[in-house]
Amino acid sequence: MGTLRFRPVVLLFMLPAFVLYAIFFVVPFVRTFYYSFFSWNGMGQATFLGLANYIRLVGDELFTAGLGRVTIWAIASIVLKVGGALVLAAMLRKRIRGSDFFTSVFFLPVVISAAAISLMFALLYDLDTGPFNVLLRAIGLGGLARNWLGDEKTAFWAVIAVPIFHTIGYFFVILLAGLQDISEEIYEAAEIDGAGALKLFTSITVPLIWPILQICIVLATTGALKAFDYVFILTAGGPGNATQVPATYMYQTIFVGLKYGYGTALAFTIFLFTLAATLIIRRLTSFQAD
């Protein structure tokens, strides 16, 4: 809170931001909610349906399967991305030779666009020239070589590996910053008491970093629930619907199917799920924070 006395002229200072934000965020958001109760092709008259769109969602296998996929995606993100980042950060908590090098390298992919990273992985997964397949053939497992993104059995896993590679460095720097705030004396005291590396990790590092770890878990989960770019660029939801997630399904429903009513219900549901996930995770994981 500042100290200057309020005067009407300050309203003018806030006006541009307010107008822009109201028109280009608040209005679309409210209309998303509004049209989710209608049947509408985006042009003509909209017909009020009540909750019909939402009821239809529950029985829509494309949606529920997509929700299942992003749930797996979220769990994989938490375990591999947040967990992996925590292990890396714990190793670099104390400055060692090469600290700056490792930090710079781990963070590097974060500044690259999801589009470029996705295209890069499309090349890595390539049937003929991709290193995965070349390696498999080289060690005599050529039978396992495949078009990773084109095979229904592997496409989903091939897709979710990409964001894990892409943003593990982001979680790493957040956690590293948090770990470096923990006083060295706590570690020294525990070491004198004879605690080993594992014990230090589980009884000091994890509990003290918990509030930040919680933020990371929320970010990883909501990131998965609203995922779009990687899927859309790598597989567009295919093969078949093997990698369809709620956001790509919503995109198809609205921009290809022109079903604005059902599409906005999907869009709003994605929001509700991210909000619920945020609240539930905060709740479930707060026990240690007190």
């Binding site: 809170m1 500042g2 806030m14 931001a17 934000y21 028109i23 280009f24 965020f25 209005v27 679309p28 958001f29 209309r31 998303t32 049209y35 985006g42 909501t222 629930l225 609203k226 779009f228 956001a247 919503m250 995109y251 609205i254 921009f255 604005y260 599409g263 906005t264 869009a267 709003f268 994605i270 929001f271 991210t274 909000l275 945020t278």
Partner: peptide, 26 residues
């Protein structure tokens, strides 16, 4: 001031993918 600040923070909770179709419409 606090209310205004919270108002401008709201968008953090809403995924871009949720509002984009209606932004397109707009």
């Amino acid at each position: 001031a606090t209310v205004i600040y919270l108002f401008f923070s709201l968008a953090v909770l809403v995924p871009m993918v949720t509002v984009l179709p209606m932004t397109f419409k707009l």
